[in-house]
């Protein structure tokens, strides 16, 4: 508090000095460091949340800069992993808190590892499969999470409190078809900021313990069409829900239900995850790939291989992104040809 940096926030009476101390003692897990993730992590870091863990599987590209507020042209130029760049920037914003970036794809093993000691999970992902995973983990470990989603000029958000509200599976039913998740219609930055404004405010309420202040509705808006809706969804809670019902099975925490390949949102890219987590020896792989008839570029976090009009990005955590295809079989055969199982 030496620099009085939180004075305007502690003057706000629902937070106050007591609330500020609670924020300092809190640990928030932010899953995804794209548009929603960069926006909300900056809000929470500036607000003095004591520990932030940020997980993201991707690296910075030029098309991110229009809305992903923590990244620079240099990050895009050098293909810096988002979790690395976000951690670096947020540490400049607030050096008094703990910030950990993890370059990883969040699946069962990762969520069970990262959820330990966490007070709240913020959904900043771009797909429903990961959200269902967060939803099950939230129920199993009794940690609240806040859904956020946006495309075009609209967005929506809902706060899931285990044992108090319906869960995401109650509201959504099954996972929508993949086409639904892809942002082919684009996105404007204000839609992102509107979602994170709501997510962050709900986060503050939870972290300072003001549960009575929570919104308790599914909130929807369209900033361009001037639409909004705030729906009370308490009646949608289902006793037979496999995630939050009377005898939950947490289906999305079952590894057998997890895909090993994923088509990335709107990117014409397939991600391949090895069956087990391991740390790839990038320098050895780089030497091997340099013997091929292609172009190899590397930074400490990943290798970019361009060969035969294809492009692959190989991460230290074992994952590979195959660009220029939506076809999983094509992606797998390229993976096997150049990198191997």
């Amino acid at each position: 508090m030496s620099h009085n940096r939180y004075s305007r926030q502690t003057l706000f009476s629902p937070i106050g000095e007591t609330g500020q101390e609670k924020l300092k003692q809190s640990h928030v897990l932010i899953v995804g460091a794209g548009a929603l993730g960069t926006s909300i992590s900056e809000i929470l870091a500036r607000a003095g949340v004591g520990k932030l863990s940020i997980v993201d599987r991707d690296y910075v590209e030029w098309s991110n800069l229009q809305r992903q507020q923590l990244y620079t042209e240099e990050d895009a130029q050098n293909r810096i992993p988002k979790a690395v760049s976000a951690e670096r920037r947020l540490k400049q914003v607030n050096s008094e808190i703990t910030i950990q970036g993890h370059v990883a794809d969040v699946s069962v093993e990762e969520i069970e590892r990262y959820i330990t000691g966490v007070d709240l999970i913020i959904d900043a992902t771009d797909n429903f499969e990961t959200r269902m995973l967060l939803n099950d983990a939230s129920q199993k470990y009794n940690v609240p999470w806040i859904y956020g989603g946006c495309t075009g000029s609209h967005g929506l958000t809902f706060t899931v409190i285990p044992e108090k509200t319906p869960c995401f599976a109650c509201l959504l039913g099954a996972i929508p078809m993949s086409g639904e998740t892809c942002d082919t219609v684009g996105i404007i930055s204000p839609a992102v900021q509107m979602v994170t404004a709501h997510q962050a405010t709900e986060a503050f309420k939870i972290l300072v313990g003001d549960y009575d202040g929570l919104r308790n509705t599914l909130l929807f808006f369209d900033l361009w069409k001037n639409e909004q809706a705030s729906i009370k969804v308490a009646s949608m809670q289902k006793k037979e829900c496999p995630s939050c019902g009377d005898s939950p099975s947490y289906p999305y925490l079952n590894k057998e239900n997890q895909t090993r390949t994923a088509i990335l949102c709107g990117r014409d890219t397939v991600q391949i995850r090895p069956p087990h987590m391991f740390e790839r020896d990038l320098s050895t792989l780089k030497q091997k790939l340099q013997r091929l008839d292609g172009k190899v570029e590397a930074n400490p976090f990943l290798i970019n291989l361009s060969i035969d009009n294809q492009r692959m990005v190989i991460f230290k955590d074992g994952r590979v992104l195959v660009h220029g295809t939506k076809d999983i079989t094509t992606a797998k055969s390229l993976y096997n040809r150049y990198i191997g199982g």
Binding site: G34, T125, T151, L171, P176, A229, I231
Partner: peptide, 27 residues
Amino acid sequence: IIDKSMHAEQQLTNGDRVEIVHFVGGG
């Protein structure tokens, strides 16, 4: 809230206030 199973049955009349929210995946 109108459950999905009731969408076909539920009639609308002039002046009804309808909220329709669709889930989006982007982020």
